[in-house]
Design a protein around this nucleic acid. Structure first.
Lengths: 228, 228
DNA sequence: GGCAAACACGAGTGATCACTCGCGTTTCAC
DNA sequence: GTGAAACGCGAGTGATCACTCGTGTTTGCC
């Protein structure tokens, strides 16, 4: 009944191979989707034989699960620093910068994440974990909305959070489709404008009418630890 | 060299079989995605032998293409009546109703459409046709925006149209995920609210606010050829 | 009624895929 | 140095899939 049926001692070489294989898998999954990707193709992309691949993963699904879990973990880190309490003190445009930018950046850097999470063809395990992350993010967004609009009924708050998140995901696709550079930056700015216009009417403040919409500061001086 | 290498006379029974097979294919593709769907599974869903299936379609891809084209055609009809000139005379909320409702309804009635269009695993032909439809819709949205905000520069108009469309797609996913009934209706209303709040500041009215909301001159206005 | 063609079947075929196995090589604790 | 274990290989294996074929049934036209 011990919980360690795998007392496998990994050498440093093995850890390197695993990382190499996961990177190759990310590339292949991203290009062809999970189902259409063959394990042989992943091994080839990693310049490794099929047998070597199966030394580190029991089957194809396990590759996707391990990759998905690593990406999920990174994603949680990214959104963890996005929803810090001090960001809540910011005015809405500043908060949007603080929340949107890290999430965008993560998805730009790891396109395999969306490819693995979005398909209806992924192994059930990934879908479950993704739902969990989704629920977590939704809760975070709800908390933010509750902070800015405490008078809003909970039901409306849930709907608003869901719609804001859905619109963000749609905009994210657009950002990822844009060539990186000026055009992508402009698309990101436009996405923030959309979210700002959607959420602005909810915040309770004396004279909110004549506020400038534009103020996306590139960075705020409250950054404590620069991300690795 | 004639253009009719297929002088195949179809009987009424054959047409019925084709419709039956396409409906089964829609169901199976929708549940499993294109790649993971087997032709045998489609034939089984249609209560037909594999041989019968291949009497009407030369290969698996042709099934998806025929289904995609039929859905695309219906979709064009739906959005054709969405963007009629008389709808342009409506105030913005009315226009949103007139445009959003038919598109939502179509996608609710034909969930296979998004399943077939969205995946990166679909045969190239479908992707091309989808891009075409996407471009058409974008142009329509641009025209609408141009009608409501004639002073907006073309570049901003394109960006705005793209973002509005992207947000709509995100909201559409949310609507489709909602159980039909009151909750779905509320989600649809919320989606319209989002689009209204995003687009409202663009319409020019007599006593408009002091300053234009838009001024993100993030880059110089030298637009070279935008990539395809 | 008779005939040709469309329709229907389902076992079969070749290709591909996930995965295995036997054997040789490298690493490391002692 | 030596032995055990981790690493690495690639041909091989069974299953599955897209697709075919030989044969029998139904339909429409004369």
């Amino acid at each position: 009944m011990s919980e360690e049926p795998k007392p496998r001692r990994r050498q440093a070489r093995g850890e390197r191979r695993i990382a190499q294989l996961l990177q190759a898998a990310a590339s292949v999954f991203c290009a062809n989707g999970y189902t259409a990707s063959s394990t042989n193709a992943i091994a080839r992309e990693a310049h490794v034989s099929p047998g070597t691949l199966y030394q580190y993963f029991p089957n194809k699904e396990a590759i996707a699960i391990e990759l998905g879990e690593r990406l999920l973990h990174q994603m949680r880190e990214a959104h963890g620093q996005a929803f810090t309490p001090e960001n809540l003190a910011l005015p809405l445009p500043g908060l949007l910068d603080a929340v949107v930018d890290p999430l965008i950046e993560f998805n730009c850097a790891n396109p395999a994440f969306l490819a693995l999470m979005h398909g209806s063809e992924v192994p059930g395990r990934i879908a479950e974990e993704h739902d969990e992350l989704h629920a977590t993010l939704l809760t975070r967004v709800q908390e933010v909305i509750a902070h800015y609009a405490p008078a809003l009924p909970a039901e409306d708050r849930l709907r608003t959070a869901g719609m804001a998140f859905a619109a963000f995901k749609g905009g994210l696709d657009l950002v990822l489709a844009a060539p990186e550079g000026a055009e992508r930056d402009a698309t990101i700015a436009e996405l923030k404008t959309l979210l700002l216009r959607y959420l602005s009417p909810l915040v309770e403040s004396p004279s909110v009418e004549s506020h400038s919409v534009e103020s996306h500061s590139v960075e705020s001086p409250v950054t404590t630890t620069p991300s690795r």
